[in-house]
Design a protein around this nucleic acid. Structure first.
Lengths: 226, 226
DNA sequence: ACCTGAACACCGTTCAAGT
DNA sequence: ACCTGAACACCGTTCAAGT
């Protein structure tokens, strides 16, 4: 029995706990209500629908994570972008359900975020202007959000083959048909997209992320000097 | 009344039509059964569960799309990668539901794909080896799949604000609080992640995609000469 | 203003039974 | 082998009614 009235704040907190425990898949309004010792309708009264709750959780997680970002006006642009990307990934690793929510719903909200203002400022100071600025912004942030979203794909036993099966199938690949895959399988197995049998939650691609990050930064740098 | 027995093939065809018309959200086993003039249980008998159907649809779409790719052994690596990315995006634009399915379930299946073998081969010939090869592969394909997935986020009226509301909110942004956002709003509005009020299905980011593509390619090239 | 309890209109999936 | 019809165990969401 709750002592005080429910609030969006405590709802978001409970929702985040539920998401961390069971993932997006097990996050239901009924389970959330039960955890808060109320009824689904009560949650609807406070925060609208399921999408609004998830959106609010996402805001909370990102706001907290980005609070630690360095000063965008005094940090070199490449360093600031690296900090942004590592911070985003770390937050998503802590709350993987939010990674797939982000990659699937990040738009469509009022986004007066100081962090995005900072990113635009950083890119401006790096030398991007006008449409090339928008392009660089999208190239970077959509790559980061997308890459991390793919890395943290949830292990879904309902889809595809069992881990052992997939491992075996990779091992049995014909080197006539797939010569380059077979030649490089030691380094691809369980480490490369479409060849992993465990998702990034339990099998993080740390080295891969740093290579991707360098790819994005150096790719932007190359477009600075025209 | 169907004249011949049902087959996975006709199920996948009907599923793709259903997905193109209503998106992932309206793709239900019941609706699929109805379209095929049978019962849900019949579909289960032929192809397992909902995830398997979606996975099979994804395979079909990708196989058909990638059939047009140029010869990986005679095409310069950067050109082949560009062709791959543009082909993937075009296929996902034709079937947007598959973009968010891909970004959310691309792993976890037996992936003996000739196209991925080709990509590994192309990157090898470009000069990548061992772990740097796996890193470059992941950097590129996860960026492409992720970026396109974010671009093609479905317009979901259940989440966030209405388009007009969002547009108004962006217009009313305080230039004290968000100076760089306000200064660049003409070029960001409806064109940049988190500032769009229409998703990439009806509002494609064509220029942005080309900039992102150059970013990935040049970023990889920069890591070739060490 | 805030919460209760029940209901509505769906889902994915399974299963006994038919042919 | 393939299909039918019904059922099970859920969903998100709404609504009249309470306090």
């Amino acid at each position: 029995v709750p002592e005080t009235a429910l609030s969006p704040k405590v709802i978001v907190t409970a929702a985040l706990e539920l998401l961390d425990e069971g993932g997006l898949h097990r996050f239901t309004m009924r389970a959330l209500a039960q955890r808060l010792d109320t009824y689904p309708a009560t949650i609807y009264w406070h925060v609208g629908n399921r999408g609004h709750v998830l959106s609010a959780v996402s805001d909370r997680v990102l706001d907290e994570a980005f609070a630690t970002l360095p000063d965008p006006t005094t940090t070199p642009w490449d360093e600031w972008l690296r900090a942004f990307a590592r911070t985003y990934r770390k937050a998503m690793q802590a709350h993987p359900a939010m990674a797939t929510w982000g990659v699937t719903h990040f738009d469509a909200k009022v986004p007066a975020s100081a962090t995005l203002d900072a990113m635009v400022g950083v890119l401006t100071r790096a030398g991007f202007e006008g449409e090339r600025l928008a392009g660089a912004y999208n190239a970077f942030i959509m790559s980061v959000v997308g890459w991390v979203g793919v890395e943290l794909i949830a292990d879904d036993p309902e889809v595809g083959s069992a881990p052992e099966e997939l491992e075996q199938a990779l091992h049995d690949l014909s080197s006539d048909e797939f010569p380059d895959l077979v030649a490089n399988m030691p380094v691809l197995a369980n480490q490369a997209m479409a060849f992993r049998w465990r998702g990034g939650i339990t099998n993080p691609l740390d080295d891969g992320f740093e290579i991707a990050l360098t790819t994005w930064i150096e790719g932007l740098r190359a477009q600075l000097e025209h």
